[in-house]
Amino acid sequence: MSLLSQAVTILLNGLQQGAVFALLGIGLTIILGTMEFLNLAHGALYLIGAYAGLLVFKEAALTNGLLYNSGIQQVGLGAGFLAALVLVPIIGFVVGALMERFVAEPFYDRAETDQLLVTFGLALIIEELVKQVIGGNTFQSIPPETLLGVQASGPIGLPIVGSFPRWRLYIVLIAGVVILATYFVIERTDFGLVVQAGTRDSEMVRLLGIPIDRSYTLVFAMGAALAAFAGLIGASFQTISPQIGMERALVPAFLTIVVGGAGSVVGAIAGGMVLGVVVAAFQQTYSQWAFIVMYLLVALVLVFRPQGIFGSVEVGE
């Protein structure tokens, strides 16, 4: 493998991993920026997305858990991946809206530490609930065979790189479209303007007579929908188990916004891509060091550029 093709492969793998990080990061950052609310249950939303995707897409064969014990061996709609792409964000949106109403809202005025702790507890509850109902076992990843009539599995021939998994390429494209759409909603619509202004100074927005509280539920739900969507994308190439919310989503989401700069959508996208490419580069060369280097990078950014690469404000400082 030549150096160039190796570099391009790293870049593609990095973009694909980075896209998941970016989706998670955008969700977390708009919630953090607008409501100054720290959501440690963000990983749990990813978890919900992954399992919702599994159950909408396929009929999953259960091996333990409450449903299995009550005689249900197969569960799921088997409605195909397209249905999952549509339904999962909606499920995430609804869960997020409920979460904002009943858990987050009472904690807006309380100490940052309390917010962290209550959402941490909520994350534990959701993880356990999934484990109890659907079972604690690991499910295989759910890459679709075809999507919209186009073949999605198998390798694809690319210039320079040669053969590359087709689905991984599509992930970059699909996630890219969603990220761009989010970017346009935030940057080009009136709603986005309110959210953006809210991340800068929510009190000022309220003083201008804009009912920003009403936008809160919408922003929270949107962030949750993005996290759930990230969960679906993640589940399409990684295994699914109740631990993934804490292990694969929560910590990377925080690292992403810390690197990119809290409260900035562009920062979250950039942060996700930077982390994704760094991890991919080391996974391909010195795989044992990949995560150590990722955390080291975050520590360096925090020490030398605490506002992040693109951020202008420090939240919670």
């Binding site: 720290l38 940052e112 962290l116 910590v251 925080f254 690292l255 810390v258 809290a262 955390y295 080291l296 975050v298 520590a299 925090l302 020490v303 605490p306 420090e314 939240v315 919670g316 400082e317």
Partner: peptide, 13 residues
Amino acid sequence: RSGVYFAVLTLTF
């Protein structure tokens, strides 16, 4: 660093 940044930094180490 303080607040979340402190929490994340200690976590990274």
